[in-house]
Computed example of a mutant assay.
Amino acid sequence: MNQSDFFYHQLDPVAVQVGGFGIYWYSLMYLVAFGAFWLLGRVRARRDDAPLNPEQVGDFLFWGVIGVIVGGRLGYVLFYAFDSFLGNPLMLFHIRDGGMSFHGGLVGVLVAIWGYGRHLGCGFLRLADFTAPLVPIGLAAGRLGNFIGGELWGRQTDVPWAVIFPESVQSGGRFSETLYQQYLAGNLDEFARHPSQLYQALGEGLALFVVLWLYSARPRPVGAVGGLFLAGYGFFRFLAEFFREPDAHLGFIALDWMTMGQLLSVPMFIIGVALMIFAYRNKT
């Protein structure tokens, strides 16, 4: 039999192993995200119209980190694992088992923006506009971490760049020599999937960053940059979900094709567009 033409995912999700403790690539991507936020934030804070000075960016980042972690975990439990939470409320604290939601993290960041804005005496929308272009690089890093970890894979396909994720074939498949030999024999091609994590890294990550950074290079009406972020993320995420495998325990939740990610992205897009319209009608 011919060897498969598809990439077989064998990337180690653990970046550093110290004794029985492992530091995962996904965890390191959070550091990349926070580092990018801090560096880009200090660049933006040097502008005359910035609501923060460079020294305040670090304090603001601390508030944001708390918002991301708390909101992301709560969002995952409420949106994706609520039944499991009802059966075992302590699962909320089992962060090492995985489970973070972007939409929950967004709510957490919005709360952080509101709280730090009140602390500074700065308007919520103005600080949100400052924040929006600093986020997408972190989103790209997070999706790259998902890909390295071999999780949140895409739907089955035969496109040339498809990837065979061993864990999608069988639990523990990453470490199965038998499964790898089947791959070498070309017997796993039917399990090839879209690398949807990379699609998301390019869309809601890099592409959204370029759009927001260029758009915000000139002063815009208050609320417009934040609105563009919401609309842009909602758009890219909605598209990416057509290539991403729905959560196994949820499946399609509406119309026999809509996923939870799409359902949560629709109001983001609508609110974002409405916010931009509001901003341009009330130019300040």
Results as ranks from 00 to 15, higher is better:
N88S: 09
P89D: 03
M91R: 14
H94Y: 13
H94E: 13
R96T: 02
R96D: 00
R96G: 03
D97C: 12
G98F: 14
G98I: 09
G99Q: 10
G99M: 12
G99K: 06
M100H: 13
M100N: 13
S101Q: 07
F102M: 05
F102R: 01
F102H: 04
G104C: 15
G105E: 07
L106S: 04
L106P: 04
V107N: 04
V107P: 03
G108A: 15
V109C: 13
L110H: 08
L110T: 03
V111Q: 00
I113L: 05
I113E: 04
W114A: 02
W114G: 00
G115S: 13
Y116A: 09
H119C: 01
H119D: 02
L120R: 09
L120V: 00
C122Q: 13
C122M: 08
C122F: 12
G123E: 11
G123I: 01
F124G: 00
L125A: 12
R126H: 12
L127C: 08
L127P: 03
A128C: 15
D129Q: 07
D129N: 04
F130K: 03
F130N: 02
A132F: 10
A132L: 07
P133S: 11
L134C: 04
V135C: 02
V135L: 13
P136I: 08
P136E: 07
P136K: 05
I137Q: 01
I137F: 06
G138N: 01
L139C: 00
A140W: 08
G142K: 01
R143G: 02
R143D: 06
R143F: 06
R143N: 03
L144P: 00
L144G: 05
G145D: 01
N146G: 04
N146L: 10
N146K: 03
N146P: 04
N146T: 01
E151K: 07
E151D: 14
E151H: 11
G154R: 04
R155L: 10
R155E: 09
Q156Y: 13
Q156P: 08
T157I: 14
T157W: 05
T157C: 03
T157P: 06
T157D: 07
T157R: 04
V159D: 03
V159K: 02
V159M: 10
V159H: 01
V159E: 02
P160H: 09
P160Y: 09
P160G: 06
P160R: 10
A162M: 02
A162W: 03
V163M: 05
V163A: 05
P166S: 00
E167Q: 10
E167A: 01
S168N: 10
S168Q: 07
S168K: 11
V169D: 02
V169W: 09
V169C: 07
Q170S: 10
Q170M: 15
Q170L: 11
Q170W: 09
S171Q: 13
G172D: 12
G172N: 05
G172C: 05
G172K: 12
G172W: 14
G173R: 07
R174A: 15
R174W: 14
R174L: 13
F175Q: 04
F175N: 02
S176Q: 15
S176N: 13
S176Y: 11
E177R: 13
E177N: 15
T178I: 14
L179F: 10
Y180R: 08
Q181N: 15
Q181Y: 15
Q182D: 06
Y183V: 02
Y183G: 03
L184N: 06
A185I: 00
A185K: 08
G186I: 12
G186H: 10
G186K: 14
G186Y: 15
N187Y: 08
D189K: 08
